[in-house]
Design a protein around this nucleic acid. Structure first.
Lengths: 158, 158
DNA sequence: TATTGTTATACTCTATAACTATA
DNA sequence: TATAGTTATAGAGTATAACAATA
């Protein structure tokens, strides 16, 4: 395990006020807690990325891989192996699209839907724990500020 | 370039309120803008991780690799190649430590210090741009909330 | 015995470019 | 011509485990 303790207390200098540094530190904390939660799962659970994919499929049944890739902010080609792995585990299914024979309509299998619901519960618990030092209002503020920094939320330049 | 535009507007579902997802999205935005800023540099500039290392050395001249690794939240072994690359470019120097002959005292070279000051200016501009949709107060709030989520900032459990 | 830096190795995530089959 | 999915490949970034030198 990485030691992020306060052992040597290095001065952060210019880093202290930089969003990039702060974001990366928190990301490490979040990912470690996510992994800890999933470690108790019999089948090993899912990674944060895999959970995100399943959540988007659950919310948009039948969406195609390109749209999913955009939603996750990765390339189409990157998505292929992710779906391969979930499909091999019987959690996700590539159905033939009715309108466009090039594309796949992604859906959760019955088992995938069951697993997703269980994992969603775990993830909500994880969410509560990592934000336990914040009030509900502060957590909402944080989510709002982060959402506003996400360019995807902005209208495109004219 | 990754397409994070609003093309297909997928419903985020449970993801919308999850810090892990929001953090990752913003991280992508931040890293892309950082890369854009550095692309104009004659020598290619530095990566966010390399900049962080140089900032910590600048703020803590003479610190050893283990302390630096802790400050960056990575393993000692991971740090080796990072410093190798910076040392090969003449930006960082491994000096012999006076007290402990096992460890190295890390310092910026004269050129490293000059480059760091220039890059710091670029990074502060980058910082201003990615947070341009936030007021100064909101940016400070965001930094504060992120800092509080960073376990390193918390007192260790008894 | 414990720590510092190092090597060897492997794994995950990601991207680019070129291909195919459709549209 | 353009798009959806795929493959092949490569490059970051990271970790673990074992080692030599030193404490």
């Amino acid at each position: 395990m990485r030691d992020t303790g306060m052992g040597d207390d290095v001065t952060l200098g210019a880093l202290a006020g930089l969003l990039g540094y702060r974001l990366r530190r928190v990301q490490v904390v979040v990912f470690e807690d996510f992994a800890r939660v999933m470690a108790d799962e019999a089948d090993g659970g899912v990674t944060p990325g895999q959970f995100g994919v399943m959540a988007l499929i659950a919310a948009n049944p039948g969406l195609k891989q390109t749209a999913l890739a955009r939603g996750m902010g990765v390339e189409r080609s990157t998505m292929v192996a992710v779906i391969d792995a979930l499909e091999k585990r019987g959690l996700v299914l590539r159905k033939d699209s009715a309108e466009d024979r090039r594309s796949h309509a992604l859906v959760l299998t019955a088992e995938g839907a069951r697993s997703y619901e269980r994992w969603l519960g775990l993830v909500l618990g994880h969410e509560r724990r990592i934000a336990e030092c914040l009030s509900d209002v502060e957590r909402e503020q944080l989510l709002d500020l982060l959402t506003r920094l996400d360019r995807r939320q902005l209208p495109t330049d004219p």
